[in-house]
Design a protein around this nucleic acid. Structure first.
Length: 487
DNA sequence: AGCACA
């Protein structure tokens, strides 16, 4: 049809839409790159990448119209254009109101349901709850859960499409019963469609994936704690596969935990080679690399379950990473390579944590045709984008605080983004009552002068840690009076 | 640099 020649299709004033059309993108721009660019302005509910003859256009759909308006307005008045990989990106309202992914309409009946659990984090709805809910309609063969931009999702496999259809029609739009949910979850509606899958490939039982047809399937703790793997020891019992790299997640992170804080804590057990901080699913995680496994084992044993700060704050959970050598690019607020001589790393690079390639992905896999972001490696969901140098950002959304960001729900008017005042550090944090890890004994040099000062950038340690911090025999530091670490 | 295989 020749509808194109008739009218000026591309006007300066497109009618606003939740959907933005981006062009002049770099070749094969990824969804992650799009999200990094757009998420400061709101919640992205859908994307469509590699559109157009040159595969250099894309669509991004915000949850709210005002968020799209905020982004367009911001860049309309910005001196710096939107950029991806250094390329100027041109954006405008799409002439459509929503992205239609005609990949799978979800209307083709299948024995596998694609379930989107709206309004919850992945931690709020366990796979067991899902199993319970869907088992009401028939035997549930397998469940695989994952997170995508659409939110927390699950694939639920029944024996046949009829059973799946009955579950769908009964549950679509309904909410999981309140008593099955954590108290803080107000409601969580299920949006259910048919998946393009017919048989999920669940490799291990984990908190992400379950195969109820094969109870003997090995449990994979890497998918449970997000880190290490188990191996079968000589006694026939499963043992965690040790590594010189520890994966730390932090619970009750009332206070900011910086690279320097981690270095202080973990250096008590040996020389820390590299540290990388990243965010996973809104949670704080860090990788700490020691020169050898033995040191990591000692540190893990000593620190597991203990708190960095008094009052039960910043409780450490440690597991062995699958990485052995972190690929830390430069030194910045999220990553540090202490093995590089100090002279060579004066310039802070844009945040770019790139770990060594994880050996395995998630515990389950579907056909490669399905555009699901397989989660299960430590870097999935990490939001450590390269920040365009000097480009003004309306908000500083790196790091753990993004999970609590209000931006998705509060969309200020266009003027709200005109000031670059947000470009600085993270939000003000309360001062911690004291670094518990510093109460390690009288011969500990790190007590006072290395206490973290939250909200202020610290001088990074580029040198080796003082040997005094390493306890005799490699044992965890013990202190005469107060315990060095406490539960 | 300019709108998506219905």
């Amino acid at each position: 049809m020749a509808s194109s020649a008739g009218q000026p299709q591309f006007r300066y004033t497109q009618p606003p839409s939740k959907v933005l059309h981006l062009r002049n993108l770099p070749w094969e721009c990824t969804e992650e790159e799009l999200i990094e660019l757009c998420k400061p302005f709101g919640k992205i509910v859908n994307t469509k990448c590699n559109v157009g003859a040159n595969h250099n256009q894309a669509f991004v759909e915000f949850a709210d119209l005002n968020q799209a308006i905020a982004m367009v307005s911001y860049y309309a008045s910005s001196s710096e254009p939107a950029q991806v990989r250094g390329k100027s990106v041109y954006l405008q309202y799409s002439n459509r109101q929503e992205i239609v992914n005609n990949k799978s309409t979800g209307d083709v009946a299948s024995n596998v349901l694609l379930v989107t659990i709206e309004g919850v984090d992945s931690g709020d709805v366990s796979i067991d709850v899902l199993h319970l809910v869907f088992s009401a309609f028939g035997f549930v063969h397998k469940i695989a859960t994952f997170e995508k931009t659409a939110g927390f999702q699950a694939l639920v496999q029944f024996s046949d499409a009829d059973t799946a259809a009955s579950a769908r029609s009964a549950l679509d739009g309904r909410s999981i019963p309140r008593y099955l949910l954590p108290e803080h979850v107000a409601s969580c509606h299920l949006r259910i469609s048919f998946s393009a899958h017919t048989d999920l490939n669940v490799k291990f039982q984990s908190h992400r994936s379950r195969d109820y047809t094969n109870p003997n399937l090995p449990v994979n703790p890497s998918a449970i704690d997000g880190a290490g793997q188990f191996t079968v020891g000589p006694d026939g019992k499963r043992r965690e596969l040790e590594s010189n790299v520890l994966l730390a997640s932090i619970e009750k992170m009332q206070y900011a935990v910086t690279v320097d804080v981690l270095n202080t804590v973990f250096s008590a057990f040996g020389r820390v080679q590299k540290i990388a901080i990243f965010e996973k699913n809104g949670g704080f995680q860090a990788l700490i690399q020691y020169p050898d496994i033995a040191t990591a084992v000692v540190a893990k044993e000593a620190l597991e379950g203990h708190c960095i700060y008094d009052g039960g704050y910043c409780k450490l959970h440690l597991s062995y990473s699958r990485h052995t050598d972190l690929n830390v690019k430069g030194n910045n607020d999220r990553s540090r390579d202490y093995t590089i001589p100090a002279s060579g790393m004066l310039q802070a690079q844009p945040s770019s944590l790139v770990g060594a390639t994880p050996a395995t992905a998630g515990g389950w896999q579907g056909p490669p045709s399905t555009p699901i972001m397989y989660s299960g490696n430590e870097f999935m969901g990490s939001s450590c984008p390269p920040q365009p140098g000097g480009a003004p950002r309306p908000q500083h959304l790196q790091g753990w605080e993004y999970g609590q960001s209000q931006i998705a729900s509060q969309t200020p008017g266009p003027n709200a983004f005109s000031s670059p005042a947000y470009a600085g550090q993270g939000p003000p944090m309360p001062s911690p009552p004291g670094l518990v890890a510093s109460n390690m004994g009288t011969n500990n040099l790190q007590s006072s002068n290395h206490s973290p000062h939250i909200g202020q950038p610290q001088m990074p340690y580029y040198g080796h840690q003082p040997m005094q911090m390493q306890m005799p025999g490699g044992l965890p530091p013990v202190n005469g009076g107060t315990p060095a670490y406490h539960m």
